[in-house]
Amino acid sequence: MSLDVGRVGAEAATDVLSVIRTAFAARPTLDPPADALVETEASVAAELRAHGGLLAILDGEPVGALLLRPGADAMLVRRFGVVPTAQGRGVAKALVRGVLDATLGHAALAVLAREELPATVAFWEGHGFVVSERRSPYVELRRPLDTSWEAVDADEMRALGERLGRSVHAGDVVVLTGELGAGKTTLTQGLGIGLGVRGAVTSPTFVIARVHPSLVGGPDLVHVDAYRLGGIDELDDLDLDTSLDDAVTVVEWGAGLVEGLAESRLEITITRALADESTDAELDPRVVHARRVHG
């Protein structure tokens, strides 16, 4: 059995809609009916284009899906469904694991379940969600998420970056803050691995920006060193080979410069875990804090 869960955009709207319709049509009749049953390919594509989603592929067939929509204080998981023929084969659990990786930097996950479906509520409770509000016919459940991690060496920093690479999508802006040698470029190397882009990611200091094209049909990686930029508007003069709307843009030293580049961004701050400045850099762990900012 081959099961793969991956982040998808508007290009997967047909498959995602098929899963949603099949999964929700198989559920008990509800009054009022589930909103998911009125989704169209256009509405699903718009959601995926704006915020992304996940698609589960089992032995080459789309069998599970969900949509993501950021809220003021949590990422909302929507249209979570598994087709009946794939239920009991670990697809739902794999989607939950995938969404935990896909939402790094958010303070919490939220999901709405119908109160007439106690087994669905129990499923989410079994994955660390707790009931936060009841608005008949809905039950809202939430799960807090980690926003800080310790990286003891470069390998762990790259591994964290790889996880971040699976959590971002086209149009995202990642702002990296940290002192010289903190590990910003190392984190970006891992992010490039997670995105599946071409080329070795190195510090862009002398060229200001580099574009790493995707090798897997996903967004390109634009790696920017803003240390010598007078403002983010100067990006327009760099003659980049890709649109920032179609890429993931990582900006080192970007705090205070890139806030107008996108409506939302992922702010990452890297600090020393130890107060002793004399500690050997190779043995000096770092603390990585991530925060999603919207609006």
Rank of each mutant, 00 (worst) to 15 (best):
D4G: 05
V8D: 00
A10D: 02
D31W: 00
P33D: 13
L37M: 12
T40I: 08
S43Q: 12
S43I: 07
A46S: 14
L48Q: 01
R49Y: 00
G53E: 00
L55Y: 10
G60M: 03
V63H: 02
G64S: 06
D73N: 15
V83M: 01
Q87T: 06
V91H: 08
G98M: 05
G98A: 03
A102N: 08
L104G: 04
A108F: 05
E116L: 06
V121L: 10
V121A: 14
E125W: 03
V131E: 15
L141I: 06
T147I: 09
S148I: 01
S148T: 13
E150Y: 04
E150D: 13
R158W: 04
A159D: 13
L160M: 14
G161V: 10
G161C: 09
G165M: 13
G171K: 01
G171E: 03
V173Q: 00
L176Q: 08
L176C: 12
L180P: 02
G183H: 00
T186N: 00
G190K: 01
G192C: 07
G194I: 11
G196P: 13
P204D: 11
F206V: 15
I208L: 15
G217R: 08
H223C: 14
A226Y: 06
Y227V: 12
R228L: 15
L229V: 03
G231Y: 03
G231D: 14
I232G: 01
D236S: 12
D237S: 13
D237Q: 11
L244N: 06
D245M: 02
V248I: 09
W253K: 08
G254Y: 01
G256M: 06
S264I: 00
L266F: 01
I270N: 07
I270T: 06
A273Y: 07
L274F: 08
A275E: 15
E277K: 08
E282L: 15
V287E: 11
V288E: 12
A290T: 11
R292V: 13
V293F: 04
